[in-house]
């Protein structure tokens, strides 16, 4: 695989995405209250917190699916009041979903190929003929997709409709579909939820490899603290929609508020 975008090789420390004072509510329900944090180029940034803390909502704000009432989002140096899904996708933000959101009726290959849509340019006319530029383009992107399939070790299920696959494999295909976008920022919403130990180890390895080999910046929501400690460079902790801690895994796990909120004290 080629290195995605300009993510690789740049110095870690440069801010890729900054969320500033974001608040989001649904009617009376406050999902996020005045949260600020940043994600630096090349890092794995974990977002943790108890159920309902607002983690998924935060990802939805970042890729423009939810529009916050307050705050700003700066991505690649450009500041916006809110993202839009199309802008986020074309600027290089990809994601996976907490509840797998694959295209169930399509095969593994077609799902991952769909991730290449934004990179495919041939127009309607050539698409009708499926020759010339359209065919060349299809072959070129198919090669890229096959590399992802090799990387994720899912060769055996390439042609299967994904709806029939076991959950663990579906999560893997979903990661593949996000990788096909060659994102600069990859948002993973509980990629290991519901997996057994072995599957978790595989998934952790893929995440580390994506980060190392392609320099992709990753934001990761995860409940398994062991995984978070192992994988992430920095952790932001949310509780009831507020940020209660932000720092390295060691700092965060020593923080009394975090211990109270997340690691022990029941609500």
């Amino acid at each position: 695989m080629r290195a995605p975008g300009d993510g690789h090789g740049t110095t870690a420390g440069e801010v890729l995405l900054a969320v500033e004072g974001v608040s989001l509510s649904f009617g009376g329900v406050k999902a996020i209250t005045d949260v600020s944090f940043d994600i630096r180029k090349g890092e794995i940034r974990a977002i943790i917190g108890p159920n309902g803390a607002g983690k998924t909502s935060m990802l939805n704000v970042i890729n423009g699916f939810y529009h916050p009432q307050q705050g700003r989002i700066a991505f690649k140096g450009e500041t916006r009041k809110r993202m839009r899904p199309y802008v986020a996708a074309s600027q290089g933000i990809a994601r996976t979903f907490q509840n797998v959101a694959l295209f169930k009726g399509m095969s593994t290959i077609d799902n991952i190929m769909a991730g290449r849509t934004l990179k495919m340019k041939t127009g309607f006319f050539w698409q009708c003929l499926r020759h010339g530029p359209a065919l060349n383009e299809e072959i070129e992107h198919r090669k890229f997709v096959e590399e992802i399939i090799d990387f994720l070790e899912i060769q055996a299920i390439r042609k299967m409709p994904v709806g029939k696959l076991p959950y663990g494999l579906q999560k893997r295909v979903e990661l593949g579909r996000a990788l096909a976008m060659q994102p600069d920022l990859l948002l993973l919403d509980e990629p290991m939820a519901g997996m057994n130990l072995e599957e978790k180890e595989d998934m952790s390895r893929f995440i580390i490899d994506v980060n190392n080999q392609y320099g992709t910046t990753i934001a990761l929501i995860e409940h398994d603290m062991g995984v978070v400690m192992d994988l992430s460079d920095r952790v932001v902790v949310l509780e009831y929609g507020r940020k209660i801690a932000d720092g390295t895994p060691a700092e965060v796990s020593a923080d009394q508020k975090v211990i109270d909120a997340y690691l022990g004290v029941p609500h």
């Binding site: 890729n63 996708a89 959101a101 295209f103 169930k104 009726g105 399509m106 849509t117």
Partner: peptide
């Protein structure tokens, strides 16, 4: 199959 995911893929 999944319009939300499609939209977030551009």
């Amino acid at each position: 199959d999944m319009d939300i995911a499609a939209e977030l893929m551009g």
